[in-house]
């Protein structure tokens, strides 16, 4: 029983991270219909920036804020500098541009910081909470609770932004149809940049939250990105809520498979889940409408 609780809560706290990466991919997808393969790499880079700040000042929260700000700026700059020039070109070119960007930032991180594994701090203790003598495990540590709260709060704020603010309305309009939005007077270019910037911020948040576990090195976000992408695809790339649900399902599933079946099988289980979901829902669990590109 205790083992089961530890597996489950641990899975939830891992899943929240996949959800955060998934969420940032959804934001970009909605804004530009582009899948940003560099999202994990950018989060790795902002985590390096945060670590430099934390080491220099000794203040975790300053590093945290700087990382999020850097994510915001880098996300926007990336959209302006490399994504927009690719806009008129074949779609696949944008895919390759983001892959190129991933390779570029990983190379840059290697040049600047070396490939050493670096320890990365958590803001709170990682010791799991107990109820009496019953251990809840690492998924219930103050640090894990902070992770969950931070991601859910970010998702909630985004929901409020989309639903109740003029900017959010414009973003939704642009996502629905760029041309129509433009005709209605929306400055689609700016809105797109904002979408990328927000995604950069969420990505940076995910980086801050997961890096303590992966340690920090140029490839540290690679496989976390794959899981985040999978979470977003399971949930449906148009649905922020779907990314959260997809992340949680994936996190818990992987832990059960590791714990009860074997440590070589979680990725295969993830693949099976993904294929199964997509066979019945080709655009993910929470696809809003059955869109068909013609």
């Amino acid at each position: 029983m205790q083992e089961f609780v530890e597996f489950t809560l641990g899975g939830v706290s891992d899943g929240v991270i996949y959800a955060a990466i998934g969420l940032s991919l959804v934001l970009i997808w909605r804004a530009t219909r582009v899948l940003n393969y560099a999202q994990g790499g950018l989060a790795m880079f902002t985590s390096y920036i945060a670590l430099m700040v934390i080491n220099a000042t000794g203040n975790y929260w300053l590093g945290f804020v700087v990382a999020l700000a850097a994510g915001l700026v880098i996300g926007g700059v990336v959209e302006r500098v490399v994504i927009r020039p690719a806009a008129g070109k074949p779609h696949l070119n944008t895919v390759i541009v983001t892959i190129g960007l991933l390779i570029l930032v990983e190379g840059l991180a290697g040049i600047i910081y070396g490939s050493k594994n670096r320890s990365f701090p958590t803001p709170y203790s990682i010791v799991g909470a107990k109820i009496g003598s019953f251990d809840l495990g690492e998924g219930a540590s103050p640090s894990a609770i902070f992770t969950a709260v931070a991601v859910l709060a970010a998702a909630g704020l985004l929901a409020v932004l989309f639903r109740y603010t003029p900017v959010g309305l414009r973003m939704r309009a642009s996502a629905f149809s760029g041309t129509v939005a433009q005709l209605m007077g929306v400055r689609v270019g700016r809105i797109t940049t904002l979408g990328w910037a927000l995604a950069g911020l969420i990505g940076a948040l995910a980086g801050m939250l997961v890096t303590p576990q992966t340690f920090l090195y140029p490839n540290s976000m690679d496989s976390i990105f794959v899981l985040g992408f999978t979470a977003a695809v399971i949930g449906g790339l148009d649905s922020p809520g779907g990314a959260i649900v997809g992340g949680l399902i994936l996190g818990v599933l992987l832990n059960y498979v590791t714990g009860y079946v074997g440590s070589n099988l979680p990725e295969l289980a993830g693949l099976a889940l993904l294929i199964l979901v997509l066979m019945f829902r080709p655009s993910g669990l929470f696809a809003s409408t059955a869109t068909r590109q013609v």
Binding site: E6, G10, G11, D14, E138, Q213, N255, T258, S263, P266
Partner: peptide
């Protein structure tokens, strides 16, 4: 046994440690 190529090593080791415990 742990798989060194696990997509999320921290999650994997966390789970295996719970089993050890």
């Amino acid at each position: 046994p742990y798989n060194v190529n696990a997509a999320n090593p921290a999650a994997e080791v966390g789970t295996l440690t719970a089993a050890l415990k």
